[in-house]
Amino acid sequence: MPRPHFGGSVESRFAKVEQVFRQNFADKWEAEGAAFAVYWNGKKVVDLWGGYADISCERKWEEDTLTTGFSTTKSVASICLAILIDQKLASYDDLVIKHWPEFGKNGKEHVTINMLLGHQAGLPYINGVTAKEDMIDHRLMSAKFEHQKPIWTPGTKTGYHVMTFGWLVDQLVRRIDPKHRSVGQFFREEIGSPYGLDYYIGMPKELHGRVARLSFIEPVRTIREAVTQPPLALMGYFFLSPLCHFHKVFKNMRWMGTSFTMYYNNPDLRELEMPAANGVTTARDLAKIHSLISEGKLLSESLVDTIRQPKYPKQFDWTLGFRDNKGYGFMYTKSPQGDWLIGHLGVGGQNVKIDLKNKLAFAYLTNGMKAGAGDFTRPFMNLQKALYECLEKK
Rank of each mutant, 00 (worst) to 15 (best):
180 H>P: 06
220 V>R: 09
164 T>S: 13
166 G>V: 08
142 S>D: 13
110 H>K: 15
112 T>D: 09
198 D>E: 14
161 H>Q: 14
144 K>W: 05
198 D>V: 08
214 L>I: 13
229 Q>G: 00
178 P>D: 08
201 I>E: 04
221 R>D: 14
179 K>H: 14
232 L>M: 06
118 G>M: 10
157 K>E: 15
231 P>H: 06
184 G>L: 02
201 I>H: 04
125 Y>D: 01
198 D>L: 10
200 Y>N: 09
171 Q>P: 04
132 K>A: 11
168 L>I: 08
134 D>W: 12
156 T>S: 11
128 G>S: 09
227 V>R: 10
181 R>Q: 14
130 T>A: 10
165 F>M: 03
165 F>R: 01
231 P>L: 04
210 R>I: 02
184 G>Y: 04
129 V>A: 13
130 T>R: 01
143 A>N: 11
193 S>V: 12
152 W>P: 04
113 I>E: 02
185 Q>N: 11
141 M>L: 15
115 M>P: 00
146 E>L: 01
197 L>H: 07
109 E>P: 00
216 F>Q: 13
158 T>K: 05
127 N>T: 12
173 V>Q: 02
119 H>C: 08
151 I>P: 00
178 P>L: 08
156 T>V: 07
184 G>W: 02
221 R>E: 15
213 R>I: 15
148 Q>M: 09
120 Q>S: 03
114 N>P: 00
231 P>F: 06
203 M>W: 07
116 L>C: 08
140 L>G: 04
146 E>M: 00
115 M>A: 12
121 A>I: 07
131 A>P: 00
165 F>E: 03
178 P>G: 09
189 E>K: 12
184 G>N: 03
143 A>C: 07
206 E>H: 14
209 G>F: 08
147 H>C: 09
164 T>I: 06
168 L>V: 11
124 P>C: 10
224 R>Y: 05
210 R>C: 01
220 V>P: 00
201 I>P: 03
153 T>E: 15
116 L>E: 06
138 H>W: 13
108 K>H: 10
231 P>I: 04
155 G>Y: 05
153 T>G: 00
116 L>W: 06
204 P>V: 14
155 G>A: 10
206 E>S: 15
152 W>Y: 14
136 I>S: 11
220 V>M: 01
193 S>N: 13
204 P>A: 12
169 V>M: 07
212 A>K: 08
165 F>N: 02
156 T>N: 05
124 P>E: 05
134 D>T: 06
138 H>T: 14
143 A>Y: 10
188 R>A: 10
166 G>I: 06
133 E>F: 07
126 I>E: 00
192 G>R: 08
149 K>M: 10
238 F>L: 03
136 I>T: 13
207 L>T: 01
109 E>R: 09
148 Q>N: 04
235 M>S: 09
226 A>I: 11
233 A>N: 00
134 D>P: 04
175 R>H: 05
164 T>L: 05
135 M>F: 08
161 H>R: 07
164 T>N: 15
167 W>A: 08
122 G>S: 07
197 L>C: 09
137 D>G: 07
189 E>F: 07
125 Y>L: 01
223 I>D: 01
153 T>P: 01
129 V>L: 11
116 L>T: 03
